[in-house]
Design a protein around this nucleic acid. Sequence first.
DNA 1: CTCCCGTGCTGAACCGCATTAGTGCACGAC
DNA 2: GTCGTGCACTAATGCGGTTCAGCACGGGAG
Lengths: 364, 364
Amino acid sequence: MTAPGEASRRKPARRPTIKDIARRAGVSESAVSFALNDRPGVSRDTRARVRRVAEELGWQANSAARALSGERADCLGLVLARPARTLGVESFFLQLVSGIQEVLSARKTALLFQVVEDLDTECALYRRWWAERRVDGVLVVDPRTQDPRPELLAALGLPAVVIGGPATPGPAAEPPAPHPVLSTVWADDAKAMARILDHLHGLGHRRIAHVAGMPGLAHTARRIRSLRAEAGLRGLDERQVRSVTTDYSDAEGAEATRRILDAAAPPTAIIYDNDVMAVAGASVAAGRGISVPGELSIVAWDDSPLCRVTHPRLTALVRDTPGFGRLAATELLAFLGGGPPRTVQGELPHLERRESSGPAPHYR
Amino acid sequence: MTAPGEASRRKPARRPTIKDIARRAGVSESAVSFALNDRPGVSRDTRARVRRVAEELGWQANSAARALSGERADCLGLVLARPARTLGVESFFLQLVSGIQEVLSARKTALLFQVVEDLDTECALYRRWWAERRVDGVLVVDPRTQDPRPELLAALGLPAVVIGGPATPGPAAEPPAPHPVLSTVWADDAKAMARILDHLHGLGHRRIAHVAGMPGLAHTARRIRSLRAEAGLRGLDERQVRSVTTDYSDAEGAEATRRILDAAAPPTAIIYDNDVMAVAGASVAAGRGISVPGELSIVAWDDSPLCRVTHPRLTALVRDTPGFGRLAATELLAFLGGGPPRTVQGELPHLERRESSGPAPHYR
DNA sequence: CTCCCGTGCTGAACCGCATTAGTGCACGAC
DNA sequence: GTCGTGCACTAATGCGGTTCAGCACGGGAG
């Protein structure tokens, strides 16, 4: 029935267990467990001997067994709820994940990563992971203004850190109110927006458009509020700073740009909430023969190679995304280790000035 | 010691086990296990009752317990070995992962995803996952010409599917030789390259450059060989089709473009192995006042929104990346289910003709 | 009427580790 | 000399499933 290759292919290839170590080291299994987990109850000699044998055998704890008895899965979860369609050019997540894993891999903690279509599926997945005890905690991304996730996770008792600020928006300029159970890492979008406005206002721009991201997202709301607030501080009124929301795609970024440029009194500067839309916007301007930055300045919120391959290269807000991921992972591990839920702030981004932003036209 | 919030936050929130189901259904635990796993040994009535109780209790099998006794982790692994630096704009992986998970989530199989710095770390990770029994199998990406991974995985007996063809390069035009243990999903780069050459040669291009990806990657080698072969079939010699390798970054793509254009007899068309480099190349051409496609045609291997935001929009080879992921996941699950290792081919990409490719200059 | 077998279910062992409750022993105190 | 005490270690138990060896029962064959 089974071909020869068939039989050999399924070779069991037994992996060593603590029993094997115990036998070879001449001690009991529990002594081995103590020795390998840095617990008291074994002499220095025995501990060293056990360690050596374990090393020789290439032993690694069976994660399932450890999870079953230890009540820990040594595994965190990250769900990305994005319709497949909008999984376009995206440098943010891979960088975030890369940062997260720098921290996790040092602790032998794994990361379960899943892309799903929508928020409901994401919630269902949290429930399943919780019930299956697959993960010790989760990293929540893309917080929304109306977000069912914090409540769900709190109800399940599944530890989590919300990346990108809380779902409950406070005043734009203030740090988010701490959630009683969840940790939060947030970026000060208000200060970041202030930096952009310092730059543009200093260059003489008085009519500024803002092509924002998805309406439901918390940081979209924060940025829109921040723009208003910062504009107000500089004596601009609401009609001079307009925000429109999009789905972050190049298509909607381009479309928004067209509508903005068609207005009666078009702005002299546009802020885009991501790099893809900024490039798309620059492309629209080029297509219409509008000179950048002569007639229109462009600023991208988030830098990437994209911003450097256009002509002119785009002025962009540079964030340390891997650093943000490291921060989030560190915070979640600290919480799992028994620490209190905290609200910590990521590094403030800086504005990388390139050729897409310049003096406002009437200033020349 | 513990604050009030501290105490409540760690609420155990017990999850139901089969013991709970057994008690409420009035049967033994083993009967519950049989009923829930579609095994014979329980009557229709009992099975239905157990199912109903499990449903009511919201029971989900503890994945650790199941893994421990069942010898299956219901989890696959995917490692991406990329220096953090080159984790730039990358649509390919998220799309691949999204396709993979369409298949996995239907079977309640999770995906462990990890980004590491290099191949050695990747191999170490396979060993650890294997020893820890974390995963039932892995999806291997970015196969190389000299690739230690198939051998390692075979030695460990860790089932795997290699995505993107085998490490052992056969003749460009032929499907890869099947590995005795590993499955492979591959793309026919030779035919894809033929489509590009059909297009360019048909437009009169006779000097064609190829800005390829990383030298060590198997598909880079395949594409370079394919270009030679296809050029030969059309009567072009080696000096008319030049390939240079890069690290896929916009910077190297631009640099390669500059050197290519500086040559004594520059090509009339350039093929780029990814979208980012193609855009960077287009940007270099624009900076030099070289008209595209008037003086230079550009083709990108891999489409993305990027290719649609440039002026002119870039002609690109469109692959069904999520479909590729689905294929790979399906194949790995089939193998885990007892099927033989197979070599299957992904859908052939098609060339999306846009404005960046046109008649060669001397044809006008 | 006995024997046998299939059906439907139970009890117990087991997976690999962590943990708790002992156990034997040396040593110091009284 | 006896008793406690701390140390180094072992034995036993449990985590939540799966699985295998029974076991009671009923019905058909001989």
